[in-house]
Each structure stands twice: as C-alpha cells, then as structure tokens.
Simulated assay, not measured.
Amino acid sequence: MSDKRIQVMIVDDSPLVRQVIAQALVRETGIEVMGTAADPLFAMDKLRRSWPDVIILDIEMTRMNGLSFLRKLMAERPTPVIICSSPAATGSETLMQALAAGAVSIINRPKFGLKGFLEDAANDIIAAIRAAARTRVALPGQPLATAHPAASTRLPTLERMTRNSADAILSAGNATVPRTADKVIAIGTSTGGTQALEAVLTRLPPTIAGIVIVQHMPEQFTAMFAERLNSLCTIEVREGRNNDRVMPGRALIAPGGRHMLLKRNGAQYYIEVLDGPLVNRHKPSVDVLFRSVARFAGGNAIGVIMTGMGDDGARGLKEMKDAGAATIAQDEASCVVFGMPREAIKLGAADRVLPLQQIPAALIEIFNRREV
C-alpha cells in the first residue's frame, strides 16, 4: 500500500467553491490540495510546475471553458477529471460532452445554496476523488494511462458501509424456463462505461438480440446518453420506459435514479422500471438487472460486465451463469477501473475475460451459436 497522498487541483472561477472544497480536503487523510486556479489558463501555468493525480473542474469559466480545457488535458496528458458543475448553468448536453471527452465522474451542484450543498456533499466529493485516483484514462483509441500509486489505497469509509443487496428489489429464486427462443443481452458498467458502451454498441448489427443496460449515471444524463448512442449505432438505443419491449436490434438503458428489471409475459420480454432503495450504493443497480435476467431469461441470456468501480453486478453475473447464461467480463488492461469485472472474475462468474475491442465479436458469435 502506498503512503503517497492523492494530489488534487481545484479549477473553478468561484472563490467559494475553491475554499469550501479545499477546507473539506484538508481534513481528509491521504488527500492533499496541491493547488487551486480560478480558470484553465491559471491552471495550465501551475501545471507546468507540478501535475496532480486528480483535477476537480468546473465547466463554465472565463477565458477558457472547462470543456476545452478537459479536451486539451486528455490529448496531452490524460488525467482523472471530476466535473463539479451545475446542469442548470452549464447544460446537460455540455456535461455529456465532458463524459465523452474523458471525465471520470460528474458532481451536480445547484445554482443556489452552494455552500451548504458542498459542505453536505463533502463525503461524496472525497469518495469521488479516491475513485478517480484509481482510474486509468485515455481518449478513445489511445492506450490507457497507468493509475497513480494511490490507487492501491483502501476504499473510503463510504465504500465499506453496510448496503442493500438485490434482495431489496427482487428476491432470489430459481430461473424459470423461458417459453421463447429469443435471446437477451444484459450489460452492466460504471466508471469508464460511457466510452466502453460506445465501443461495443456501435459494432453490433441490427439483427442482434435485444439488449438491456445499466450504466451508473445521474438521472439527468441517461436519456441524453441514449440519444447520443442512438445517433452513432445501427441498432436502436434509448432510455428504457416501463413496459418497453425487449426486442432484436434495440438497446434499452436504465434511467438514472430508477431500477430496471427484465420481465417476461409469455414469449415476450419487457422491462419494468421502478423506484426503490439503493442497491450496492446505486440506483439503477447492475445486480438488480442481472438477477432479473437470470430469473426470466435463464440460458437464453448473455451477460457482460465492464469497467467500473466497486462490485455491483458481480453476484448478479454469477446468478446469470448459474442459470445457464453465457457470461463475459472485460479484462483489466482495457478497463478504466478494474473493479466490477475483477469481483465477477473472483466469484467465477465469467466464462470469458476479454479485451473491450473483442467483446462485440464475442457477443455476435455467442448469439449466432445459440440461434442454431
């Protein structure tokens, strides 16, 4: 375990934001604020002297906006970046572009009551910093940068808290025998998943099985994320709505802030979207989706777990495998964060461990084989 502290730079044109976040981090063991900057140009001047492990970045700033700065960083020296900005001020589309440009996470802050929000959200910000320090980032098509040594530090208290399992939404039970030959692909991912999903879904043909997806993402972004993927893919991609049919050539992404389950009515698959408690600290939860797929699709399913922090989805993928599904985990070298796949592999939940670029071909091959 490394004793080196995570070096953080805060780039925000609000003195209040810089002050409150810095004060919260000063009290945190293992994290050090190496500098603050009121805009990206001041930040670049400081970066010439020393480089942080994690950057907290606002989007709307003077002289250079945060999105342009983020793209410059990722092109020159990929670094974990946490966006801390207001969707109301910035626009959800711009924040989506930040995720696509390589930001590892977004903290949504309000336009008003900012000081109280930042003080209340201090633990979440600290957890996001620790998670970011464990990520490896790069632009699409570039090799992943090596994580900082601080990535080996223990998870923060938040990560070790008692938490709900999938039982809170759907009790464990034996798989039912599907009265259909239709196949279902279930995908779960988190940090780094926006790029990983694009890499997979854009390479799938419109004849592929129906796809259900959980990507850990705030509720303001899933619909826009689905729209962006839909514009890039030959398959249909959209945010899932309650009772939507799961059908060939269609991918349904769980809406942020809601759980999504696969259900079956006779020979037809559909989704149920519902509220409920966090599961594995997430809503939607991959474990909830995977358990429902194991229950209602059984051996007709293919499960994929990709890049993400934590272990959400690992137990669910094992349930899918035990129910007869084919299962795939993304390999460590191609993951931004090798958390969720690693835990699934440790449980023996993955039939195959594959680089990201090989997953689309594997899905097509398994789908075609099971169609025979």
Rank of each mutant, 00 (worst) to 15 (best):
R315Y: 14
R315I: 15
R315C: 13
G316N: 04
G316W: 01
L317V: 12
L317T: 07
L317E: 04
L317R: 03
K318Q: 12
K318L: 15
E319W: 14
K321V: 02
K321L: 10
K321A: 11
K321F: 08
K321N: 08
D322L: 13
D322C: 06
D322E: 14
A323R: 04
A323T: 07
A323Y: 03
A323I: 09
G324K: 01
G324E: 01
G324Q: 01
G324P: 02
G324V: 03
A325T: 10
A325Y: 09
A326K: 14
T327C: 11
T327M: 12
T327Q: 10
I328S: 03
I328K: 01
I328M: 09
A329G: 14
A329Q: 12
A329I: 12
Q330R: 00
Q330K: 01
D331C: 03
D331P: 07
D331I: 02
E332S: 12
E332I: 07
A333R: 14
A333Q: 15
A333P: 06
S334Q: 02
S334L: 04
C335L: 11
C335V: 12
V336G: 01
V336K: 05
V336S: 06
V337G: 01
V337P: 00
V337I: 15
F338V: 03
F338D: 00
F338N: 00
G339T: 10
P341E: 04
P341I: 05
R342F: 11
R342L: 13
R342A: 15
R342T: 10
E343A: 14
A344F: 06
A344H: 03
A344I: 03
A344W: 04
I345H: 06
K346G: 05
K346Q: 14
K346C: 07
L347E: 02
L347C: 00
L347T: 00
G348K: 05
G348S: 06
A350R: 11
A350W: 13
A350C: 13
A350K: 10
D351W: 09
D351R: 08
R352H: 15
R352E: 15
L354S: 05
L354K: 01
L354I: 07
P355N: 09
P355W: 09
P355H: 10
L356W: 10
L356P: 08
